[in-house]
Design a protein around this nucleic acid. Structure first.
Lengths: 319, 319
DNA sequence: TCATCACCTGTAAACGATTGCATCGGCGCC
DNA sequence: GGCGCCGATGCAATCGTTTACAGGTGATGA
């Protein structure tokens, strides 16, 4: 900037103002300086500016990635959310700093102006930990832990409930639920499902499974069968689980959807091509990401931001 | 830091050295200062340090996301790569700045110490553009554009070739390829496939499809059928395309794998549960990410870094 | 007694941008 | 002519950290 000042025969500060489109500087001078800057490939030093301005113009996004269970990382939802987040934040002139929970101790994260936490995880430990940083924070998941942060998530209770109604309407009376309710989101799905069924005098069976894989879904069904429990409907809290469950059900000699109805969750692309085409619950991730970003930006700007729940949609296909 | 200096009765610089574990400072003083810092919740100002040190300790990762074609964002591979990248970079004390191509004009990206480009895209325009920034850069994809950057990718030619051999060994003589060879990676897969077949006197049919969706795969097969072309093997450059192609083939009254063999690419989790279980080519994304990160770090440290090609593995299942 | 050295610690000056306050020429107005 | 004001520009200080250089001890040896 000092160089530009010399080149254009003005002072540093005029250059700074000119590049910032300040109305204080003469329009002609401004254009001249800007063109000189462009010509010489001038690049603003973000660190210097942030230092002076005492803000980083950065939001840290913390995703839950399990490097151990390699398959877990194929879960496509974080990326879909990231799309919305990234779009919204960069549009507002903010940068997206991506980290895992383990990496979140790096200084750069603490320097962020705000936090977005993707995936509350099996327990709320992570949410609490980052809440303690005192930064503006938005969490993707289910409303659960009290704190100053905002929670955005889809209507998991509603999702569970509408699957329950779907099953009931089909005449199913022996439904089972497959998933891990330690995750608050899954917990909500389960609750919505159970409550809606119990209201109709039906008590579903819960099969707790830690992994969100087809194998895990298949094992769940095998376990139920081994116990000798009859079932005529399966609500899997994830499409992968659902696909595995369907395979295992078919392997047991039952027909899907004649003998057993199955509904998954997430509407993965592969589900539509699955045989039979997978019925599922769809949530709008792109919108979720956008909202997460907006809420954090709101909090950073000292505005109040409310937690919000996004509507879901039951997609009935062949199962 | 000035406050810490007052609190511990030394000068700023001694504090700086103490926190940096400098051997210049007395061990007792160092411990005292460090404990005072911890006690008062001192946080290093990353911007100030980076300003002084004239480096950002940040690598920008530019992913190709199409906000328009929402489905495109479900492509899981960027996230798998991101896992490896993030792990490796944070371990080295670097931060990961995530952007899209559109957002990459933001100042923060230009301030990065290095660049990782995920997805070369249909043309090489993006690669060239970022190459011009003159930053250390690693690209995921196929070696193609000359430049100072390093390219990491899996052995797409080899992948294509081993599918060709697989088909040949099965006695297939009328194979078709589905995909978009404008992407350099796909181009390599196609070339490896074609070359290996031509060497055996077989000439495969190329079906160019822009989208990587099941629908697109199905349409491809319908198009071939409409043209009255006979085929007995399909190599789809992506699992989603493959699944769509299989459905369409079955809908035509042919059996997979009896009449038609199909191989996909990427080994998506849903593929294993598909009916019939999808044969595919697996690439190690976690490793790819790790390597990308290492190469950029190498380049940043002014070491030479070579482009590298990762081995792939043909996973033969039911198709 | 004094030079020498090792070991700590401190002073001042960066790094590159922005804000508060001062300056300065010119114009309108009474 | 003098006053006040306005638009445009500049000076100096500031953000929080680190590096080059300069002390200032106390011990050691001659």
């Amino acid at each position: 900037m000092a160089d530009l000042a010399r080149l254009s025969g003005v002072s540093k500060i005029t250059v700074s103002r000119a590049l910032g489109d300040s109305p204080l500087v003469n329009a002609r001078t401004r254009d001249r300086i800007q063109s000189i800057a462009r010509e010489h490939g001038y690049k603003l030093n973000v660190n210097a500016r942030n230092l002076r301005l005492r803000r980083s113009h950065t939001v840290a996004v913390i995703v839950e990635m399990k490097p151990t269970a390699q398959r877990g990382m194929f879960d496509p939802y974080p990326l879909a959310l990231l799309g919305g987040i990234s779009q919204e934040l960069t549009a507002a002139g903010y940068s997206v700093l991506l980290t895992t929970r383990q990496g979140a101790t790096v200084a750069a994260v603490q320097a962020a102006d705000g936090l977005i936490l993707l995936g509350q995880g099996a327990n709320q430990e992570a949410v609490r930990r980052f809440d303690r940083l005192g930064l503006p924070m938005a969490v993707w998941g289910a409303t659960s832990v009290a704190g100053s942060h905002v929670t955005i998530g889809s209507d998991n209770r509603g999702g569970g409930a509408c699957v329950a109604e779907h099953f009931f309407a089909l005449g199913r009376r022996q439904p089972i639920f497959i998933g891990n309710p330690s995750h608050p989101e899954i917990f909500d799905r389960l609750n919505g499902f159970v409550d809606a069924l119990v209201a109709r005098g039906i008590k579903p069976l819960l099969l707790k499974r830690d992994e969100f894989t087809p194998e895990s879904g298949a094992e769940a069904v095998q376990a139920v069968h081994a116990r000798g429990v009859a079932f005529d409907a399966i609500f899997a809290c994830n499409d992968l689980l659902a696909m595995g469950a369907i395979r295992a059900t078919v392997a047991l000699g039952k027909s899907v959807p004649r003998d057993v109805s199955v509904v998954g969750y997430d509407d993965m692309p592969a589900g539509a091509t699955f045989l039979p085409a997978l019925s599922t619950v769809r949530q709008d991730w792109q919108l979720g990401g956008t909202l997460l970003a907006r809420k954090v930006l709101g909090l950073i700007g000292h505005q109040d931001a409310e937690s919000e729940s996004l509507p879901v949609e039951l997609v009935v296909r062949g199962t």
